[in-house]
Computed example of a mutant assay.
Amino acid sequence: MGRQGQVQRVVILAIMIALDFLLSPIFRIEGMAPMSSVMNVIAAVLMGPTYAVVMAIVCALMRMLLLGIPPLAFTGAVFGALLAGILYRLKSVVWMPIIGEIIGTGLIGSLASYPVMVLYTGTHSQLFWFVFTPRFFGGAIIGSVIAYLLLLKLTQVDQFKRAQRYFLTK
């Protein structure tokens, strides 16, 4: 892949980052970020695990620095993006990244949030291991259902398929 393909990858990644950053606070439920899950799943299908994780990390940093979101932005997004991308690459069916997002964000991300928040707040007296799990699962399920419905149509669009090829070729 030449320079044009590399530029197209970066442009698509930048668009996905912008969409994730702009949509997440607009469609937010207190303690849940379903639009982050939507974008994780779409990024996993469109760009694969590496670029999906890059998107999640950049968006988490932007949310923390510009919106004052705690470090849960990292734990909530990165594991879901990674697992969604890996599962989609293993079997390219639309429901595989949904499972990855729900397990990655809902379970792994929620459990990883406990030690992060203990370090962040300096206390663990009011926290316990599963405190984040219901909200992370809720956000991941809501976002994954929305992503599934969107992907049913997006995967039929020629431009989406063409964009996928930019990330599949080396």
Rank of each mutant, 00 (worst) to 15 (best):
L66R: 15
F74E: 01
A73T: 05
P71I: 03
A56D: 09
A77M: 04
V54A: 00
F79L: 14
M62I: 09
G100T: 14
G104D: 09
T123S: 08
S92N: 15
S110Q: 08
L65P: 02
T75C: 09
I99G: 14
I57Q: 00
A77E: 02
L61C: 14
P115T: 00
I108W: 01
G85Q: 09
V93T: 07
I103Q: 04
T50N: 15
G122T: 03
I102K: 15
A112W: 05
G76C: 00
M62S: 09
Y51E: 06
T50R: 15
I102F: 03
I99C: 12
M62T: 15
R89Y: 03
R63D: 09
G68H: 10
F128G: 02
R63P: 00
P115S: 14
G104K: 07
L107K: 11
P71T: 01
T75M: 11
Y114R: 10
K91N: 12
G80P: 10
L46C: 13
G104Y: 00
P49F: 12
L111W: 01
I86Q: 02
R89L: 02
L46A: 07
L83V: 15
Y120K: 04
A73F: 07
V58P: 07
I102H: 11
Y51G: 11
Q126I: 02
I69E: 01
L83Y: 03
L72M: 13
I99P: 01
A77T: 12
V94H: 04
A112C: 03
Y51A: 15
G48Q: 12
I69F: 02
W95M: 08
T105R: 14
V45D: 08
T121C: 08
V118Q: 06
A81M: 06
T121L: 06
M117D: 07
V93S: 06
I99A: 15
T121A: 05
Q126L: 02
Y114P: 12
L83A: 11
L61R: 14
M117L: 14
Y51D: 06
S113Q: 12
S110M: 01
L119N: 13
F79R: 08
L87I: 11
T50Y: 10
L87Q: 03
C59Q: 01
A77P: 08
L65E: 07
F79I: 12
G85C: 07
G85P: 06
R63F: 05
T75Q: 06
